[in-house]
Design a protein around this nucleic acid. Structure first.
Ligand SMILES: [Mn+2]
Ligand SMILES: [Mn+2]
Ligand SMILES: [Zn+2]
Ligand SMILES: [Zn+2]
Lengths: 134, 134
DNA sequence: AACTTAAATAATAATTTTTATTATTTAGTT
DNA sequence: AACTAAATAATAAAAATTATTATTTAAGTT
């Protein structure tokens, strides 16, 4: 797996728990600690919730993971990747990525405010196509 | 005060605690529950933390307040107003509003994704002008 | 392949954060 | 002034997160 290298790069030991955690986050796309714990318990019945907490926090600090906040939900973790926009459906709960460039926005925000920016979080809420029909 | 009318419009009783809470949020711009509680205790030594929690939650549901999440900080409440962008300084902690229009972004996100959007949250992080000098 | 050691894990306790409960007080009405 | 539903303060309970510690394990070394 490529996550083996990710962990080695950050000098974290490659444990089965960590690999499963990363693979599950990748598979889910965006997931909170509770859901992650519930899923990991299937393959690791003895896994501790504290291990999940510690690992996601640690990997967030090391920028292996990114975190997003959708209104009224717990923090959602995802594999860190290029900055992107999040679309969250209020009905079905789906969160999906949109690879829309926000460089222009960042750039103009910088020049207008004088800030030197290094991070962006954009979360848009509404109804996804299928929930509009239903 | 104009917050008297705000509360009446939402059929909330106009209590001194609520008025002070709203005035302090307005004054602070963006503030979390703990800081709000600490400040309100100065004028209301007997105020309960649960009252602060209940009121901000209630006012958020009624859309009197809006909430924002700055990475690595507790939820910050503000008086609800027109959608705007948030700039947060990682050094000094300042959070300021930027009245930049994101309608174009919302509109193109809608047409590209098929979502029907009703809310946006944009938080940009970096260093404010004065923290860059220091 | 066995040995060593620092790090990770599981179990658990403790802390922090948030919500629920209830008796008392109060705002808004009659 | 009296009435009533809602708000508050105090407190308990629950939920979320972090800390502690004994045991296990990954990864390097012989
Ligand atoms: Mn994403
Ligand atoms: Mn704001
Ligand atoms: Zn949906
Ligand atoms: Zn600053």
């Amino acid at each position: 797996m490529e996550f083996t290298q990710t962990l080695r790069d950050q000098e974290l030991k490659v444990t089965p728990q960590r690999l499963a955690l990363l693979e599950e986050i990748e598979h889910a796309g965006h997931i909170d600690v509770d859901a992650l714990y519930a899923i990991l318990k299937m393959s690791f019945p003895a896994i501790s919730l504290a291990t999940v907490y510690k690992n996601v926090s640690q990997m967030y600090e090391l920028k292996i993971l990114e975190v997003i906040k959708v209104p009224d939900r717990k923090l959602q973790y995802e594999i860190a990747k290029a900055p992107h926009i999040h679309l969250a459906c209020d009905q079905c709960g789906n969160v999906l990525d949109m690879n829309k460039c926000i460089d222009e926005l960042m750039f103009s925000a910088e020049s207008e405010s004088g800030f030197k920016l290094n991070h962006s979080a954009v979360v848009l809420n509404g109804l996804c196509p299928s929930c509009q029909s239903a």
